[in-house]
Design a protein around this nucleic acid. Sequence first.
RNA 1: GGGUGCUUAGCUCAGCUGGUAGAGCGUCGCCCUUACAAGGCGAAGGUCGCAGGUUCGAAGCCUGCAGCACCCACCA
Length: 919
Amino acid sequence: MDKTYSPGDIEERIYRRWESEGLFAPAGDGAPFCIVIPPPNVTGTLHMGHAFQDTIMDALTRFHRMAGDRALWQPGTDHAGIATQMVVERQLLAEGQTRHALGRDAFNERVWRWKEESGGTIARQMRRLGASVDWGRDRFTMDPGMSRAVQQAFIRLHEDGLIYRGKRLVNWDPVLKTAVSDLEVQSEEENGTLWHVRYPFADGKGHVTVATTRPETMLGDVAVAFNPDDQRYRGLDGRMLALPLTGRQIPLIADEFADPAFGTGCVKLTPAHDFNDYEVGQRRGLPLINILTADAKISEEAPTAYRGLDRFEARKRVVADLEAAGLLEKTEPHRLTIPRGDRSGAVIEPWLTDQWYVRIAPLAEPAIRAVEDGRIRFVPANWDRTYFEWMRNIKDWCISRQLWWGHRIPAWYAPDGSIYVGETEADVRKRHGIPADIALRQDEDVLDTWFSSALWPMSTLGWPDKTKELGTYYPTSVLVTGFDIIFFWVARMVMFGLNFTGEVPFREVYIHGLIRDHDGQKMSKSKGNVLDPLDIVDGIGLEALVAKRTTGLMQPQVAPAIERATRKQFPDGIRAYGTDALRCTFASLATLSRDLRFDLGRVEGYRNFCNKLWNAARFVLLMTEEPLPAGEEMLSLYDRWIRSRLAATTAAVRDAFSEFRFDLAAQAIYEFTWYEFCDWYLEFSKPVLQSGDAGEAERRGARRTLLETLEKLLRLLHPLMPFITEEIWQKIAPRIGKTGKSIMVEPFPGPEPSAISAAVEAEAQWTMASILGVRAIRGEFDIAPSHQAAVFIENASAEDRRRFEASASAICKLAGIGEVRWLSPGERAPQSATATVGDMKIHLPMAGLIDVDAELARLGKRRSKVEQELARANAKLGNENFVRNAPADVVTQERERLEGFKRELAQLSEQHERVASLR
RNA sequence: GGGUGCUUAGCUCAGCUGGUAGAGCGUCGCCCUUACAAGGCGAAGGUCGCAGGUUCGAAGCCUGCAGCACCCACCA
């Protein structure tokens, strides 16, 4: 093995081998375990959030695979209707083309080409991240099989009366010129204006005043309402008003909808352009006047003067005209929420169109029950509240989109307006007996992308066919996703899954947090703070990073600021940290928190950890190079200690995995590896293996423990750090006679309670305390490591002496002790700095090494600390309520602590006197 | 207007059923001791957002407050 760990050399090679040996496909006859990937946009690239999510899914999959389950991680990508269509349209625009000029078929061909061109990026990225997905089962939402599932789902829902077509107000995006669902509308508070406008009575006597934030829609007003309880307007119900600028007359009506407390208490009603007004209009039988076109210009239904004007242009014109007519009473600033399309950013217009809807209430009810009765479990659990909240107030889902890229709606129209739903035109004709001479026209629209996503766990496994995979892996085991798509995706999968199969699509939903940058900002291209996970894996130079962050911006003017920030944060670019370090960082971020700040410092920490593991492995290999002749074997205290610690760590890691606490798993392994295995055990093993004064049986025990502990540790670590563990395992495993072809299909370490020994740990702890005591003195006084101290030990019990002598070589080596003298009772040590372990004192003579004042300062500091603790323990035990009410073992423990402090304090005082007398 | 989450060391975060406050990075000493300077050994650093309450005992439980973040909602 190379002296330095360099991930670049090993990761790609190892992945290729895993893949070519077919290790990602489910194998064996264990219990099925399945995760379906949340399909990323096929033409996109993976960002940090994906990499994070993939790390979690891969860790789970690898864990279950090693645990003997038939583990399937189902990969795939999404056609992402609007997003992808927008990208291609922008490409066309750059070429001076439009999709309309190209025509539907040619445009779709173009999108398919773009998909083929860019579709490989994600797969490449996932391979670099070590994702153990079953590539043989890769799916795309517009594959023939997937499309068939979509079509069948639509047909069945329609047959069951759960899909209908209706004309009503929808959220209309006038830039994309399509309807969008409620979820795709982002409402944000913005500064606006409230205009108070006079509507004169038709008879010329007086007026009422209405307040509005959208004056241009008055062109479509059909009434003005006041509250029936509003005394100001008593008796005016039914009076006619002359609607300004239009020449039309509209009634003043009394309706509960009007809020007397707002503005003047009069509200204008524009049923074709406002969701509330629409409802009132329906209830009151008011007409609908649609004054806007699909691109939000004033339509033919409005007065000539305004036709063709953009809505915002029209607003200005209307306000000016009202003012000129003396009808604008006042204008005031007003905060209001503006709905915008989440893709286009355009202000959404409530607009009257024909659309397809899913009747959602009958689907929601069983979906609510499935979570209530625990068939589906959210982790962390309180996300179920969010889910319930939305599901209980759910509204019908508008599923048609006026786009070209997506699943075409399987509905055909006859000239007489009848609608037929079926697989193909031929199927429709056959089913409904429609003769060839009646022309049928297929619906132009496509389905919301999320319609196909909602089927994903079923469709990827073969639904609507009853495939073997569907039978085996459905319901899937865990869904891993972010809270941002609980409504978009999770809820809809549950509804569709239950409706079509009668079973939940997954049993657990692990909701992870959102990866933000170091300052807590959401990562986005426009903020220029995005990190490409592969740039952390492979590293990237500063110039390349700047270029990456500043090209292709929607607003190029922010480029200089981004460049400055980038140069400041990464003056040397980003170094290559390797996949394992990145994955471990992600694992350590997988806390229950919902905002996760990504800090490169942590990646560096885990890269160092990889290096540590690497070098520990080199040491183990070095120590076990030439075989020892077979023979008797003896396990030392430390051999038994590290086995005990490993067993405890294994239990902690297994617990952590079962609770999705990858952060705790990573932490447990990190601490074991570094602080126990490397810092202590490897050091303990050195005197045995290197000094030659240990017996052969002891050496055999140590060598076997080294190998077995490391080998097991690698398996424990593999789900989080697949590459480095494989690389090392290939070298370690043969030395204990393991012949498996890959660590990824070796068993995950099982619980081993019998290896845990409190007695062994206590004795090992005692020796460590002795070593630490001496080292603290050495550190405090900067005693050179090369100096072998001669120590005097005072007040040692027989057990102390036995323990010390049993581990003498290890203690002396690690504490830098050259010689030990045991003082008999009454015998005094020379002036020394002293470490205490229980009642035993280890004296380090001061002559020539230790400065008297410095030692007094050290003792003083320690004394004040002990005094503090002592006072606290005293107070506690002096409180009779504590003694009476606290559990017996807590009280005993506190008494022992108190005694310990008392003894130590006495020793410190005595020591202080002795040293002080030297002056 | 409802709802959720967060507030612990300079920074990023752990702290499981209440029982001696922890890690990484950063900082300060000493050390190239043949696994590892991407390292070793030692050290400094915290009124656990604020105020009450419950309890023998609170970072943790309850109440209120403050600050931050997010989600949902049709108030012109």
